[in-house]
Design a binder for these strands. Structure first.
Length: 289
DNA sequence: AACAATGTTCAGTC
DNA sequence: GGACTGAACATTGT
């Protein structure tokens, strides 16, 4: 579930609670989550160091690490953390108290299998930091390629955004989800942003008019702001209507469902219909076979 | 029991 | 290279 707001919570948790604590042991035995590293590689790279800073761009987190005492001079590698679809960061203090950030906590905290901790740093003070991830789609990687990501969705400027959102022929929703173009928007945020801006998700980006891009940019800002304020992407106004029989919270029209950009997509049949745009500017919606 | 699900990445095709 | 599809990952919820 984690999209930009949840990932920022996880980053802040690390920044507030995990920095400066000496790493004495590392469980990097999950070769899928830690790919392409082999077991022991992350342990060798991190043991004896501390995390010194936690950064984020889009949904990617990376932590700088300190020099290791008695080792080669200079800082250690960056520790890259991606929460995937269900990952959560759990930081435990020396007295065993834990704090979490990322995927919203389960109601049922008892259903917590130890093997869902996919990666763990143990600190000298007796506490730990773990990537807890039921679905195992999270990822831990040394020196992740942050440069492959587009500008963070919270920082992108209007001119940058206009450039990004009008080049090519891809569906506007697919472009919003393309992390190499703009980083941090996930499936739920994308549906919410398009709904707020009243734009059909399958509209090719080169068909967006200036006014559409302006509405989209404003919706991006307001959706991120309210998701942050209310605790995550799943708190959006239209998210509750993403179900069979759902109706638009604004006009009560039936919600439509389909696949756009390979992802499950819901939109208002009235406000986000193709016919809501000037007819002469629109191609037929791509037919699905 | 079958199917879809918040994300990424890779292989393959046109 | 752009656009698109399907598969893979593991588990939960409907």
């Amino acid at each position: 579930m984690p999209e930009l707001p949840e990932v920022e919570n996880a980053r802040r948790l690390i920044a507030n609670q995990a920095l400066g604590r000496t790493i004495v042991a590392v469980d990097d035995s999950d070769t899928f989550v830690c790919r392409p590293h082999s077991p022991g590689e992350l342990r060798a790279a991190l043991t004896g160091r501390t995390l010194t800073a936690a950064h984020r761009r889009g949904k990617a987190i990376w932590c700088e690490t300190s020099e290791v005492l008695g080792g080669p001079p200079g800082p250690g590698p960056d520790l890259g953390i991606h929460l995937g679809m269900s990952g959560r960061i759990v930081v435990t203090s020396p007295d065993g108290q834990s704090a979490e950030g990322g995927d919203p906590p389960d109601r049922d905290a008892q259903q917590r299998k130890a093997e869902w901790n996919r990666f763990t740093l143990e600190f000298a003070d007796g506490g730990r930091m773990a990537l807890f991830d039921k679905r195992r789609l999270g990822r831990i990687q040394l020196n992740p390629d942050i440069g492959a990501l587009g500008p963070d969705a919270e920082q992108v400027t209007r001119p940058e955004f206009a450039e990004l959102m009008t080049r090519g022929t891809i569906a506007v929703k697919a472009r919003l989800l393309d992390q190499s173009k703009i980083a941090g928007i996930g499936n739920l945020l994308a549906d919410e942003i398009l709904w707020q801006a009243k734009i059909p998700p399958a509209m090719p980006v080169n068909r967006l008019r200036r006014a559409d891009v302006d509405r989209l940019y404003r919706a991006l800002g307001s959706v991120l702001e309210s998701a942050k304020a209310y605790g995550g992407a799943h708190t959006g106004d239209v998210i509750a209507a993403r179900r069979p029989g759902g109706t638009c919270p604004r006009d009560g029209a039936e919600m439509r469902h389909g696949t756009v950009g390979g992802r499950s997509t819901w939109w208002c049949s009235r406000e986000q219909a193709w016919s809501a745009a000037p007819r002469e500017l629109l191609p037929e919606p791509a037919s699905r076979r």
